[in-house]
């Protein structure tokens, strides 16, 4: 299977991951004394956005959502020894953030798993990654439903109760996740799975 669509998409995904890693490394290695280099790297990032055809609005939304972390960290470093460098640091970090957001929009979990499988990552980790992604939304929905059911019967705004209620949602979520894990194991066995 040399040129099947699967192997081609796997190669594409591998290229995207490697490209993003290289770009982030390049940006990280940029010396603080050379802020202009960052401009050139910014163009590379823009090129990546164009090549991967990432829609701009969701991209901007993700970046804005995550940028407070960078701002906070940059401010923390502004208190530090090289107080004048914090702008460079913020720019550098933002460029990296855009790169990672582009990557996260451009690869799917299936492609990612195919890449990791080709890279000989242990099967146990792959199984765990795949199952996590499969049940992430199922459990998030369950958690939201439990939260709603709780708040429908919560009449006090006291913080103490809010904590106990939220904790019991999380606790029940774990119980349900373990019970579901049992049933998933049974379903896997029923179709001939061997550990």
């Amino acid at each position: 299977m040399s040129a099947t669509p699967e192997s081609r998409s796997r190669r594409n995904a591998a290229l995207k991951v490697a490209g993003a890693l290289l770009l982030v490394l390049l940006i990280t290695l940029t010396p603080v004394s050379r802020p202009l280099w960052l401009g050139a790297e910014g163009l590379l990032v823009a090129l990546a956005v164009a090549v991967c055809r990432v829609p701009l609005v969701p991209l901007a939304r993700r970046v804005l959502l995550l940028s407070p972390f960078i701002a906070g960290a940059a401010l923390a470093s502004a208190v530090g020894a090289h107080a004048s460098d914090w702008q460079t640091l913020a720019v550098r970090s933002s460029l990296c953030l855009v790169t990672v957001v582009v990557l996260s929009q451009a690869v799917t979990i299936a492609e990612l798993l195919a890449v990791l499988r080709a890279a000989k990552v242990p099967t146990l980790l792959l199984t765990t990654l795949a199952l996590m992604h499969r049940y992430l939304f199922v459990l998030a929905d369950e958690s939201a439903r439990m939260g709603r059911a709780r708040s429908a019967r919560t009449f006090s705004g006291r913080r103490r109760f809010a904590w106990i209620a939220a904790a019991s949602v999380v606790g029940n979520l774990f119980v349900r996740a373990s019970e579901r894990a049992e049933r998933v194991y049974e379903a896997m066995c029923a179709r001939g799975w061997k550990a």
Binding site: R134, Y135, R183, E186, A187, M188
Partner: peptide, 9 residues
């Protein structure tokens, strides 16, 4: 529960 049985991506 079909969600138990459909465990792949």
């Amino acid at each position: 529960d079909p969600d138990d049985q459909l465990f792949c991506g």
